[in-house]
Design a protein around this nucleic acid. Structure first.
Length: 308
DNA sequence: CTGGGGACGGGGCCC
DNA sequence: AGGGCCCCGTCCCCA
């Protein structure tokens, strides 16, 4: 069932380190932020040519960061907005820059004796683990992306490139900024983010929903509109899913069967309820549940739908 | 305990 | 890319 799956996903992702969290947060900035970053990258490229020899170019330019990732007016903790996560990104950005400055003291990079990592990699980031800076890194005057080999004079330029522009990096993972869920496509991620931001508000009661059609269904509870009608008994419903569930009541064949007692039910939720009792009765007669019992429960609750 | 309705959530697909 | 829609599902409540 989806709940089980969600739990599994959460359990798996709970093992992620905090550093990874803070880094991945940046994978989800809005389209507007992407546009902002686009401008910044252009400036960064310009910066590459102008500041290659300057010490300032070796760490993130704070002025730019403040502009690109403005600090929120309030302090944590509180419900986060896009700007808050921009700020989180900013903080993690500073942290990594600090770490880099410890291991790679700021020095003029055009000096032939200076060794500099060709690619910055955040701690414990699996997606970039292959490119971790090593003491044996080759001499390179620029920060190079391990995904597409594009190089930058500053860590900031490389980082922003990885966040917003490098397809090789972006394709790897899209992680929600509000929770630990990850998606393979930006579209799926954006859709999921709506479940956190709830942009669709009911004008009548103010309740918020993730999608317009959910709001539409909710509004029907105010208006009493019931556009879905049962062809058999003409009963009308506001929700198509509820009509579908209703249609089961007209069917002699019940889709969900308890594999313990063979009793059938029209809905999985009814079967699940039944199984709680059915299993309880079993466990009272059989003190030690077996693996087979556990499997039977799973089968009952998730895959016992009869093929019709 | 069961059956059924109401309200709602979320992933995926299509346009 | 975003919206609309479908489908599957859960939870709650009541008879």
């Amino acid at each position: 069932m989806s709940t089980t799956t969600d739990n599994l996903i959460e359990d798996e992702t709970m093992t992620e380190s905090d550093n990874r969290k803070s880094f991945l947060i940046s994978n989800l900035l809005s389209g507007e932020s992407l546009l902002d970053a686009e401008e910044d990258e252009e400036e960064e490229e310009e910066n590459n040519s102008m500041n290659d020899d300057s010490i300032e170019g070796k760490l993130p330019d704070e002025t730019k960061l403040h502009r690109a990732f403005p600090k929120p007016s309030m302090t944590f903790p509180r419900l986060m907005s896009t700007n808050d996560f921009s700020y989180l990104y900013y903080l993690s950005y500073q942290y990594f820059a600090m770490q880099m400055s410890k291991t790679n003291p700021i020095q003029p990079t055009n000096h032939p004796s200076i060794k500099k990592p060709c690619s910055f990699t955040p701690p414990t980031s699996s997606s970039c683990s292959s490119s971790s800076p090593s003491p044996n890194s080759t001499i390179n005057s620029r920060y190079q992306c391990d995904g597409c080999s594009k190089s930058y004079s500053t860590f900031g330029g490389l980082s922003k490139h990885k966040q917003f522009h490098c397809i090789a990096q972006i394709k790897k993972q899209f992680q929600c900024k509000f929770c630990e869920k990850t998606y393979n496509s930006l579209g799926a991620l954006k859709m999921h983010i709506r479940t956190h931001t709830l942009p669709c508000k009911c004008k009548i009661c103010g309740k918020a929903f993730s999608r317009p059609w959910l709001l539409q269904g909710h509004v029907r509870t105010h208006t009493g509109e019931k556009p879905f009608q049962c062809e058999i008994c003409c009963r009308a419903f506001a929700d198509r899913s509820n009509l579908r569930a209703h249609m089961q009541t007209h069917s002699d064949i019940k889709k969900y069967r308890c594999t313990k007692c063979s009793k059938t039910f029209s809905r999985m939720s009814l079967l699940n309820k039944h199984m709680e009792n059915c299993l309880q009765q079993t466990t009272t007669s059989v003190p030690v549940p077996t693996i087979a019992d556990t499997n039977t429960l799973d089968e009952c609750s998730s895959t016992a739908a009869l093929s019709i």
